[in-house]
Design a protein around this nucleic acid. Structure first.
Lengths: 148, 148
DNA sequence: TTAAATGTAATTATATTGGTTACAAGCACT
DNA sequence: AGTGCTTGTAACCAATATAATTACATTTAA
Protein backbone atom coordinates (compact mmCIF):
# COMPACT_ATOMS: atom_id res chain seq x y z
CA UNK A 1 0.00 0.00 0.00
CA UNK A 2 1.36 3.39 -0.91
CA UNK A 3 1.11 6.06 1.73
CA UNK A 4 0.10 9.62 2.01
CA UNK A 5 2.58 12.28 1.21
CA UNK A 6 2.57 16.02 0.95
CA UNK A 7 1.83 17.05 -2.60
CA UNK A 8 4.78 17.51 -4.88
CA UNK A 9 3.28 20.90 -5.67
CA UNK A 10 5.52 22.09 -2.89
CA UNK A 11 8.70 20.71 -4.43
CA UNK A 12 7.62 22.02 -7.80
CA UNK A 13 7.08 25.46 -6.30
CA UNK A 14 10.62 25.45 -4.99
CA UNK A 15 11.86 24.25 -8.35
CA UNK A 16 10.09 27.06 -10.14
CA UNK A 17 11.47 29.79 -7.90
CA UNK A 18 14.95 28.38 -8.08
CA UNK A 19 14.86 28.16 -11.83
CA UNK A 20 13.57 31.70 -12.18
CA UNK A 21 16.65 32.80 -10.32
CA UNK A 22 18.99 30.70 -12.42
CA UNK A 23 17.39 32.10 -15.53
CA UNK A 24 17.14 35.66 -14.29
CA UNK A 25 18.68 37.05 -17.44
CA UNK A 26 16.28 35.10 -19.61
CA UNK A 27 12.52 34.77 -19.88
CA UNK A 28 10.90 32.22 -17.61
CA UNK A 29 7.69 31.44 -19.42
CA UNK A 30 5.45 28.65 -18.25
CA UNK A 31 6.64 26.59 -21.17
CA UNK A 32 10.26 27.11 -20.26
CA UNK A 33 9.65 26.21 -16.62
CA UNK A 34 7.56 23.21 -17.59
CA UNK A 35 10.41 21.78 -19.56
CA UNK A 36 12.73 21.74 -16.57
CA UNK A 37 10.11 20.42 -14.18
CA UNK A 38 9.03 18.03 -16.86
CA UNK A 39 5.34 18.63 -16.73
CA UNK A 40 2.60 20.51 -18.51
CA UNK A 41 2.74 24.32 -18.82
CA UNK A 42 -0.76 24.54 -17.40
CA UNK A 43 0.42 22.88 -14.21
CA UNK A 44 3.19 25.45 -13.96
CA UNK A 45 0.75 28.29 -14.51
CA UNK A 46 -1.50 27.03 -11.77
CA UNK A 47 1.33 26.81 -9.28
CA UNK A 48 2.85 30.08 -10.43
CA UNK A 49 -0.53 31.63 -9.86
CA UNK A 50 -0.46 30.48 -6.26
CA UNK A 51 3.05 31.83 -5.79
CA UNK A 52 1.85 35.09 -7.25
CA UNK A 53 -1.11 35.31 -4.91
CA UNK A 54 1.30 34.82 -2.03
CA UNK A 55 3.47 37.67 -3.27
CA UNK A 56 6.45 35.53 -4.17
CA UNK A 57 6.55 36.09 -7.92
CA UNK A 58 5.42 38.63 -10.43
CA UNK A 59 3.58 37.41 -13.49
CA UNK A 60 1.34 39.28 -15.88
CA UNK A 61 -1.25 38.01 -18.31
CA UNK A 62 -0.07 38.36 -21.85
CA UNK A 63 3.50 39.05 -20.83
CA UNK A 64 5.90 36.16 -21.06
CA UNK A 65 7.96 35.27 -18.02
CA UNK A 66 7.81 35.22 -14.25
CA UNK A 67 10.13 37.08 -11.95
CA UNK A 68 10.80 36.86 -8.25
CA UNK A 69 8.92 39.43 -6.24
CA UNK A 70 11.33 39.33 -3.32
CA UNK A 71 14.97 38.87 -2.71
CA UNK A 72 16.17 35.27 -2.77
CA UNK A 73 17.09 35.43 0.87
CA UNK A 74 13.61 36.58 1.78
CA UNK A 75 11.71 33.63 0.41
CA UNK A 76 11.65 30.68 2.77
CA UNK A 77 10.49 27.20 1.97
CA UNK A 78 7.74 27.80 4.49
CA UNK A 79 6.50 30.67 2.34
CA UNK A 80 6.32 28.29 -0.59
CA UNK A 81 4.74 25.56 1.48
CA UNK A 82 1.98 27.88 2.55
CA UNK A 83 1.63 29.46 -0.84
CA UNK A 84 0.97 26.25 -2.70
CA UNK A 85 -1.53 25.25 -0.11
CA UNK A 86 -0.60 21.64 0.25
CA UNK A 87 -1.78 21.49 3.82
CA UNK A 88 -4.65 23.22 5.46
CA UNK A 89 -3.83 25.51 8.36
CA UNK A 90 -3.22 23.37 11.40
CA UNK A 91 -4.46 20.25 9.70
CA UNK A 92 -1.41 18.31 8.68
CA UNK A 93 -2.85 15.54 10.78
CA UNK A 94 -6.44 14.56 10.56
CA UNK A 95 -8.33 13.36 13.57
CA UNK A 96 -11.32 11.07 13.36
CA UNK A 97 -14.35 13.25 13.54
CA UNK A 98 -17.06 11.67 15.64
CA UNK A 99 -15.78 9.84 18.68
CA UNK A 100 -18.43 8.71 21.10
CA UNK A 101 -19.19 11.46 23.66
CA UNK A 102 -20.55 8.89 26.09
CA UNK A 103 -17.04 7.52 26.58
CA UNK A 104 -14.50 9.50 28.63
CA UNK A 105 -11.85 8.76 26.06
CA UNK A 106 -14.14 9.49 23.14
CA UNK A 107 -15.18 12.86 24.43
CA UNK A 108 -11.67 14.03 25.27
CA UNK A 109 -9.32 12.38 22.83
CA UNK A 110 -9.40 15.24 20.39
CA UNK A 111 -8.51 17.86 22.95
CA UNK A 112 -5.81 15.56 24.26
CA UNK A 113 -3.97 14.94 21.01
CA UNK A 114 -4.57 18.03 18.94
CA UNK A 115 -2.05 20.15 20.89
CA UNK A 116 0.62 17.52 20.34
CA UNK A 117 -0.12 17.27 16.65
CA UNK A 118 -0.07 21.01 16.40
CA UNK A 119 3.30 21.18 18.12
CA UNK A 120 4.68 18.57 15.74
CA UNK A 121 3.39 20.45 12.75
CA UNK A 122 4.93 23.67 14.01
CA UNK A 123 8.28 21.94 14.47
CA UNK A 124 8.15 20.84 10.87
CA UNK A 125 7.22 24.28 9.65
CA UNK A 126 9.97 25.88 11.66
CA UNK A 127 12.57 23.87 9.77
CA UNK A 128 11.08 24.98 6.48
CA UNK A 129 11.06 28.56 7.70
CA UNK A 130 14.79 28.46 8.28
CA UNK A 131 15.71 27.57 4.75
CA UNK A 132 15.52 30.07 1.92
CA UNK A 133 15.51 29.78 -1.83
CA UNK A 134 18.95 31.31 -1.66
CA UNK A 135 20.13 28.25 0.27
CA UNK A 136 18.67 25.98 -2.36
CA UNK A 137 20.32 27.94 -5.14
CA UNK A 138 23.65 27.74 -3.37
CA UNK A 139 23.21 24.03 -2.88
CA UNK A 140 22.65 23.54 -6.56
CA UNK A 141 25.60 25.67 -7.56
CA UNK A 142 27.79 23.64 -5.25
CA UNK A 143 26.66 20.35 -6.65
CA UNK A 144 27.21 21.60 -10.16
CA UNK A 145 30.75 22.66 -9.34
CA UNK A 146 31.58 19.37 -7.70
CA UNK A 147 30.41 17.29 -10.62
CA UNK A 148 32.22 19.41 -13.20
CA UNK B 1 -10.38 22.41 -2.41
CA UNK B 2 -9.80 20.11 0.50
CA UNK B 3 -6.19 19.34 1.29
CA UNK B 4 -4.08 16.36 2.08
CA UNK B 5 -3.67 15.30 5.63
CA UNK B 6 -2.06 12.45 7.48
CA UNK B 7 -4.54 9.63 7.83
CA UNK B 8 -6.68 9.61 10.92
CA UNK B 9 -5.52 6.03 11.37
CA UNK B 10 -2.87 7.58 13.53
CA UNK B 11 -5.30 9.39 15.80
CA UNK B 12 -7.46 6.28 15.93
CA UNK B 13 -4.45 4.23 16.95
CA UNK B 14 -3.81 6.56 19.84
CA UNK B 15 -7.47 6.44 20.74
CA UNK B 16 -7.43 2.64 20.80
CA UNK B 17 -4.38 2.38 23.03
CA UNK B 18 -5.71 4.99 25.39
CA UNK B 19 -9.05 3.30 25.66
CA UNK B 20 -7.49 -0.09 26.30
CA UNK B 21 -5.80 1.47 29.29
CA UNK B 22 -8.97 3.12 30.53
CA UNK B 23 -10.75 -0.17 30.20
CA UNK B 24 -7.94 -2.30 31.57
CA UNK B 25 -10.23 -4.10 33.99
CA UNK B 26 -12.69 -4.90 31.23
CA UNK B 27 -12.55 -6.55 27.83
CA UNK B 28 -11.56 -4.34 24.91
CA UNK B 29 -13.05 -6.18 21.96
CA UNK B 30 -13.02 -4.64 18.52
CA UNK B 31 -16.71 -3.98 18.93
CA UNK B 32 -16.20 -2.19 22.20
CA UNK B 33 -13.39 -0.07 20.80
CA UNK B 34 -15.35 0.65 17.65
CA UNK B 35 -18.17 2.11 19.68
CA UNK B 36 -15.94 4.68 21.29
CA UNK B 37 -14.11 5.57 18.10
CA UNK B 38 -17.44 5.50 16.31
CA UNK B 39 -16.47 3.36 13.38
CA UNK B 40 -16.71 -0.18 12.12
CA UNK B 41 -15.19 -3.05 14.14
CA UNK B 42 -13.32 -4.22 11.03
CA UNK B 43 -11.54 -0.88 10.87
CA UNK B 44 -10.50 -1.31 14.49
CA UNK B 45 -9.28 -4.81 13.82
CA UNK B 46 -7.18 -3.63 10.93
CA UNK B 47 -5.53 -0.93 12.99
CA UNK B 48 -5.18 -3.16 16.02
CA UNK B 49 -3.46 -5.66 13.77
CA UNK B 50 -0.91 -3.02 12.85
CA UNK B 51 -0.35 -2.11 16.47
CA UNK B 52 0.10 -5.78 17.21
CA UNK B 53 2.65 -6.24 14.48
CA UNK B 54 4.57 -3.32 15.96
CA UNK B 55 4.55 -4.97 19.38
CA UNK B 56 2.31 -2.41 21.03
CA UNK B 57 -0.67 -4.58 21.85
CA UNK B 58 -1.49 -8.21 22.41
CA UNK B 59 -4.45 -9.66 20.62
CA UNK B 60 -5.30 -13.26 19.89
CA UNK B 61 -7.64 -14.74 17.33
CA UNK B 62 -10.73 -16.15 18.95
CA UNK B 63 -10.02 -14.44 22.26
CA UNK B 64 -11.95 -11.29 22.93
CA UNK B 65 -10.03 -8.21 23.91
CA UNK B 66 -6.78 -6.42 23.28
CA UNK B 67 -4.22 -5.55 25.93
CA UNK B 68 -1.22 -3.28 25.96
CA UNK B 69 2.03 -5.09 25.33
CA UNK B 70 4.17 -2.45 27.00
CA UNK B 71 3.94 -0.05 29.84
CA UNK B 72 1.99 3.10 29.15
CA UNK B 73 5.08 5.18 29.57
CA UNK B 74 6.93 3.13 27.01
CA UNK B 75 4.62 3.71 24.09
CA UNK B 76 5.24 6.98 22.31
CA UNK B 77 3.06 8.59 19.70
CA UNK B 78 5.94 8.04 17.30
CA UNK B 79 5.63 4.32 17.90
CA UNK B 80 1.98 4.54 16.95
CA UNK B 81 2.69 6.79 14.00
CA UNK B 82 5.13 4.30 12.61
CA UNK B 83 2.99 1.31 13.50
CA UNK B 84 -0.05 2.46 11.60
CA UNK B 85 2.07 3.27 8.62
CA UNK B 86 0.51 6.53 7.65
CA UNK B 87 3.69 7.78 6.09
CA UNK B 88 6.34 5.90 4.24
CA UNK B 89 9.84 6.04 5.69
CA UNK B 90 11.36 9.37 4.78
CA UNK B 91 8.55 10.23 2.40
CA UNK B 92 6.30 12.60 4.21
CA UNK B 93 6.99 14.95 1.36
CA UNK B 94 6.83 13.84 -2.21
CA UNK B 95 9.12 15.27 -4.81
CA UNK B 96 8.27 15.42 -8.49
CA UNK B 97 9.91 12.45 -10.09
CA UNK B 98 11.36 13.34 -13.46
CA UNK B 99 12.93 16.78 -13.63
CA UNK B 100 14.87 17.50 -16.76
CA UNK B 101 18.50 16.36 -16.40
CA UNK B 102 19.57 18.77 -19.11
CA UNK B 103 18.82 21.67 -16.80
CA UNK B 104 21.18 22.44 -13.90
CA UNK B 105 18.22 23.01 -11.65
CA UNK B 106 16.37 19.98 -12.91
CA UNK B 107 19.25 17.63 -12.34
CA UNK B 108 20.04 18.85 -8.83
CA UNK B 109 16.79 19.99 -7.30
CA UNK B 110 16.06 16.68 -5.68
CA UNK B 111 19.41 16.43 -3.95
CA UNK B 112 19.07 20.05 -2.90
CA UNK B 113 15.69 19.81 -1.21
CA UNK B 114 15.47 16.25 0.05
CA UNK B 115 17.82 16.85 3.01
CA UNK B 116 15.70 19.80 4.10
CA UNK B 117 12.50 17.83 3.83
CA UNK B 118 14.08 15.02 5.72
CA UNK B 119 15.15 17.35 8.51
CA UNK B 120 11.65 18.75 8.71
CA UNK B 121 10.17 15.31 8.91
CA UNK B 122 12.57 14.30 11.65
CA UNK B 123 11.68 17.42 13.63
CA UNK B 124 8.05 16.40 13.44
CA UNK B 125 8.77 12.86 14.49
CA UNK B 126 10.89 13.97 17.39
CA UNK B 127 7.92 15.79 18.88
CA UNK B 128 5.81 12.68 18.56
CA UNK B 129 8.58 10.64 20.15
CA UNK B 130 8.51 12.79 23.25
CA UNK B 131 4.88 12.16 24.06
CA UNK B 132 3.67 8.86 25.47
CA UNK B 133 0.28 7.26 25.78
CA UNK B 134 0.66 7.87 29.47
CA UNK B 135 0.70 11.59 28.79
CA UNK B 136 -2.45 11.30 26.74
CA UNK B 137 -4.17 9.29 29.46
CA UNK B 138 -3.21 11.90 32.04
CA UNK B 139 -4.50 14.63 29.79
CA UNK B 140 -7.84 12.95 29.53
CA UNK B 141 -8.12 12.29 33.23
CA UNK B 142 -7.41 15.94 33.86
CA UNK B 143 -10.03 17.16 31.48
CA UNK B 144 -12.56 14.80 32.96
CA UNK B 145 -11.86 16.09 36.47
CA UNK B 146 -12.15 19.70 35.39
CA UNK B 147 -15.48 19.24 33.71
CA UNK B 148 -16.98 17.30 36.60
C1' DT C 1 -4.84 43.10 -36.12
C1' DT C 2 -1.97 39.30 -35.22
C1' DA C 3 0.86 36.28 -32.51
C1' DA C 4 1.95 34.64 -28.21
C1' DA C 5 1.41 34.16 -23.22
C1' DT C 6 -1.16 33.93 -18.99
C1' DG C 7 -5.40 32.62 -16.32
C1' DT C 8 -8.69 29.26 -15.60
C1' DA C 9 -12.22 25.84 -16.13
C1' DA C 10 -13.45 21.18 -17.38
C1' DT C 11 -12.10 16.53 -17.92
C1' DT C 12 -9.59 12.34 -17.09
C1' DA C 13 -6.67 8.63 -15.03
C1' DT C 14 -4.87 7.07 -10.93
C1' DA C 15 -4.60 6.43 -6.02
C1' DT C 16 -5.80 6.72 -1.19
C1' DT C 17 -8.90 6.83 2.53
C1' DG C 18 -12.39 5.07 5.27
C1' DG C 19 -16.16 2.30 5.49
C1' DT C 20 -18.77 -2.02 4.68
C1' DT C 21 -19.74 -6.83 3.99
C1' DA C 22 -18.46 -11.43 4.13
C1' DC C 23 -16.23 -15.24 5.72
C1' DA C 24 -12.38 -18.37 7.24
C1' DA C 25 -9.96 -19.62 11.37
C1' DG C 26 -9.34 -19.79 16.36
C1' DC C 27 -10.79 -20.30 21.13
C1' DA C 28 -13.97 -21.05 25.23
C1' DC C 29 -17.53 -23.50 27.15
C1' DT C 30 -20.95 -26.89 27.58
C1' DA D 1 -17.74 -32.67 19.20
C1' DG D 2 -20.69 -28.65 18.66
C1' DT D 3 -22.16 -23.88 19.44
C1' DG D 4 -21.26 -19.12 19.72
C1' DC D 5 -18.42 -15.36 19.78
C1' DT D 6 -14.11 -13.08 18.27
C1' DT D 7 -10.19 -12.05 15.50
C1' DG D 8 -7.94 -11.82 10.94
C1' DT D 9 -8.51 -10.67 6.12
C1' DA D 10 -9.92 -10.08 1.64
C1' DA D 11 -12.93 -7.90 -1.58
C1' DC D 12 -15.47 -4.11 -2.77
C1' DC D 13 -17.36 0.70 -2.79
C1' DA D 14 -17.97 5.79 -2.41
C1' DA D 15 -15.77 9.93 -1.86
C1' DT D 16 -11.92 12.71 -2.63
C1' DA D 17 -7.15 14.38 -4.10
C1' DT D 18 -3.43 14.65 -7.32
C1' DA D 19 -1.45 15.58 -11.57
C1' DA D 20 -1.90 15.73 -16.35
C1' DT D 21 -4.27 17.32 -20.27
C1' DT D 22 -7.19 20.02 -23.31
C1' DA D 23 -9.39 24.04 -24.50
C1' DC D 24 -10.35 28.69 -24.56
C1' DA D 25 -11.05 33.56 -22.95
C1' DT D 26 -8.26 37.48 -21.76
C1' DT D 27 -4.38 40.40 -22.13
C1' DT D 28 -0.25 42.29 -23.98
C1' DA D 29 3.40 43.67 -27.41
C1' DA D 30 4.56 44.60 -31.90
Amino acid sequence: MKKMSISSRFAVGVHILTLIEFNKDGVSSSEYLAESVNTNPAVIRKITGMLKKAGLVEVHPGIAGARLARKLSEITLLDVYKAVDVVQENELFSVHGNPNPKCPVGRNIQDAIIPVLSTAQIALEKVLGNVTIEDIVKGIVEKENISS
